[in-house]
Design a protein around this nucleic acid. Structure first.
Lengths: 146, 146
DNA sequence: GTTGACCTTCCCATCTTGGTAAGCCCCATG
DNA sequence: CATGGGGCTTACCAAGATGGGAAGGTCAAC
């Protein structure tokens, strides 16, 4: 298999396969006489593993550890679980942060006329019309557009 | 006010103030004879506006538009609201995507013994033990560790 | 006068992915 | 045989926003 075939088989772009090799996430591929990289079905499987882990949001650093554990028959599931749980915490932190943003914005947008007039609680909030109004929003109340 | 004072007043780092100037988000500051940048209270207010918008997750491109609208007395609140609503959609998309990841991982982690044995549904899922098991997870069921 | 705190510009790093360019290799078709 | 198209190679640039640091100028206080 050359790199294009490995890309099609794994769902990882050829560009990314070379990048993963360059950062040491996967070992350097064997080369054919013309310099082309050669891949086996096993290599493609590893790339699929990486792609799936990316889909679950793992960083490449975390994926490096997961791949090593995957290939280590003497691994303990505890090690794998620990990596996953750290990632779950990261995800939940990010979700909470984005939800807070979305909630604030939804509240402000709902209070915004969305018409031809300039008055807008969104702009007012950003301008820091202020702490008072931000606090009101945080409590679910919205300052009327003057 | 020099850049350090403006940074303290606005909560934006001096580093970022220079960067915002370099990309044209804010106009180039006037300079004192020694080359130091000079800022007014109004400038600091603009920087606070930007900081607050960043806290709500707006991109610098979106913030550029928001700042222009803020300073445009003939703006319509509809323009502001449109930008906010696009951003709300972006946030909700990202939240949904992260929640899907977190949910899958939580299900897999819960099914993982977390002990000394190597068997681990997380690794199995990544290895693509497969579509079948992924579908099961998506339906809330979890393949028992063999 | 020296020290410490501040300012300046410039470069590098993060993290993952995509794009592009220049050049080599191979196969098939005319 | 020659040419074209597609695949491969490396190398550089880009994004997003922020931080870090080096090297050097400036100012104020002691």
């Amino acid at each position: 298999m050359n790199i294009g075939a490995a890309a099609r088989a794994s769902g990882v772009s050829a560009k990314m396969i070379r990048y993963y090799e360059s950062i040491g996430l996967i070992p350097a591929a064997r080369r054919m006489e013309n310099g082309y990289r050669v891949y086996t079905a096993t290599d493609a499987h590893t790339l699929s593993f990486i792609r799936r882990a990316r889909e679950l949001g793992f960083s490449l650093a975390q994926i490096g550890r997961l791949v090593r554990l995957w290939q280590d028959q003497s691994r303990s599931s505890a090690e794998v679980k620990a990596i996953a749980q750290i990632h779950i915490l990261e995800l939940n932190d990010k979700i909470a942060s984005l939800q807070a943003m979305a909630h604030t914005l939804e509240t402000l947008a709902q209070a915004c006329g969305g018409d031809d007039r300039p008055d807008c609680p969104i702009i007012a909030d950003l301008a820091g019309a202020g702490l008072a109004s931000s606090l009101a929003v945080r409590n679910g109340r919205v300052p009327r557009a003057r």
